[in-house]
Amino acid sequence: MMHLELVTDLSAPDAESKPDLCTLGERPRERMLLYGPAVLADVELIALLLGGGRALHRARGVLDAVGGLAGLSRACPQELRGISGIGDASATALAAAVELKRRIDRLELPWGRQLQTPRDAELFLRSILHGASQENFIVVGLDARQRVRLVRTVAIGTLTRVEVHPRELFRPLLRGGMHSCLLAHNHPSGDATPSEADVLLTERMARIGLFLGVPVLDHIVITDNSFVSLAELGLLPTNLDGLDE
């Protein structure tokens, strides 16, 4: 006698066991409607943004051309438009999705929360600096309880360097009555090791901050996957020696 088992578990497959794309007829839209967006692979999500014919094939081409999601987060519409099968509509749709993600991340920034450790600062700054293709120098103004009250992009440089003037850095802090500040910049190269120029800049800005009464508590160098705190390395001066150099 044949025995049949009734399968009642209709829950979505987890990330480890999700079906191969081809077994479902390569239909990301139906998979999202059935199981939700979390089970879709990166290429499927991009295919939904692209739409039209051979969307999965074109989506794979995009990821291959830009070097994965990290590359996509840094790609401009003009660069995307140069990929085979990607026209103006697709390029701008992808760029718009990336920009929306950045804006959503900023909505979740812990405004008014205390940044008491380098890890606190890194988590706050990552949403601002993640994916930037050029060096961006950020100053974060803090109140007496080290709560975030001001964030400014002081300068935007090239892939490997950025120039920062003390006037541009401390002006918003003084006008805003900040008690102290954090400095931060990204290294698009992926190596968070501070350069000699980073160390010299930190020493100079820290001494100027002491002189102006707005001490620099830390300088965070951040990449997409790591960060370094110059305060933890003992590279923040605690006196004005060398300010005139």
Rank of each mutant, 00 (worst) to 15 (best):
E26M: 02
E26A: 12
R27L: 12
R27N: 14
P28Y: 07
R29G: 02
R29D: 02
E30F: 05
E30S: 03
R31N: 05
M32F: 06
M32C: 12
M32N: 04
L33T: 12
L34F: 00
L34V: 06
L34I: 07
Y35A: 12
G36F: 00
G36K: 00
L40F: 05
L40M: 04
A41C: 02
A41S: 05
D42H: 10
V43D: 01
V43H: 01
E44K: 05
L45R: 14
I46K: 00
I46N: 03
A47C: 10
L48W: 01
L48N: 07
L49R: 09
L49S: 00
L50V: 05
L50H: 03
G52M: 11
G52W: 12
G52N: 02
G52K: 12
G53K: 13
G53I: 15
R54Y: 08
A55G: 13
A55W: 14
L56G: 05
H57I: 14
H57P: 13
A59R: 12
A59E: 00
G61Q: 01
G61V: 08
G61M: 08
V62D: 03
V62I: 04
A65N: 02
A65T: 14
A65K: 11
G67E: 10
G67H: 03
G67Q: 11
G68P: 01
A70W: 06
A70Q: 09
G71S: 07
G71I: 10
S73N: 13
S73E: 14
R74E: 11
R74M: 07
A75V: 15
P77K: 08
Q78G: 15
Q78H: 15
E79N: 14
L80W: 04
L80N: 06
R81W: 14
R81D: 15
R81F: 15
G82R: 02
G82I: 11
S84A: 14
G85R: 10
G85K: 09
G85V: 14
G85F: 05
G85S: 06
I86Y: 03
G87S: 09
G87T: 04
D88R: 06
A89G: 03
A89N: 12
A89S: 05
A89C: 07
S90R: 12
S90M: 13
A91T: 00
A91H: 04
A91M: 11
A91K: 01
T92W: 11
A93Y: 06
A93S: 04
L94G: 04
A95N: 11
A95M: 11
A96V: 09
A97T: 13
V98P: 10
V98D: 04
E99A: 09
E99V: 00
K101M: 15
K101T: 15
R102K: 09
D105Y: 00
D105A: 01
D105V: 00
L107E: 14
L107W: 14
W111P: 09
W111K: 09
W111F: 09
W111Q: 06
W111A: 01
G112I: 06
G112H: 04
G112A: 10
G112K: 04
Q114L: 13
Q114W: 10
Q114M: 11
